[in-house]
């Protein structure tokens, strides 16, 4: 298994911790986890990417879809603590301006509070 997904319920949001690599193979697991959360709750979603070592386009695509669905439902998907290499991939694809990205957990939480 190249990706581990840990999901915790926090006050008003789901906290997802990713560990490993998201590629064309493992993005299916990430997609299923996010779809399940989207279906079962109205919570915001914060994704801790500190231990996310790699992402390719299917993973960005999964986050894009989830982010757009979240906006339509007046909720937010926020990624935080991306390492430099993963951030660069989002940046080259043009998604750092589309999907909210924070540098820390506290900043991610404040992005939620500022908008609520």
């Amino acid at each position: 298994m190249i990706i581990e997904i840990d999901i915790k319920q926090e006050e008003g949001f789901k906290l997802i911790k990713l560990k490993g690599e998201v590629d064309a193979s493992s993005s299916i697991k990430l997609d299923e986890a996010l779809q399940k959360i989207m279906k079962e709750s109205n919570d915001h979603i914060l994704v801790d990417c500190e231990q996310l070592e790699y992402i390719s386009s299917p993973g960005i695509g999964v986050f894009n879809e989830c982010s757009q669905d979240s906006l339509e439902q007046n909720r937010k998907l926020i990624l935080f603590k991306l390492n430099d290499e993963v951030f660069e991939i989002f940046d080259i694809a043009g998604f750092t301006k589309i999907i909210p990205i924070a540098t820390s957990f506290d900043q991610a939480k404040s992005l939620l509070e500022n908008d609520s």
Binding site: S57, N64, E65, I92
Partner: peptide, 23 residues
């Protein structure tokens, strides 16, 4: 497709080849 088109259509595809061409 450009990023805006991908975002608007909530596409999961098309990002990969865009990355390849940019890299």
């Amino acid at each position: 497709p450009c990023t805006e088109e991908i975002v608007k259509a909530k596409q999961k595809n098309g990002i990969g080849l865009m990355l390849v061409k940019k890299i």
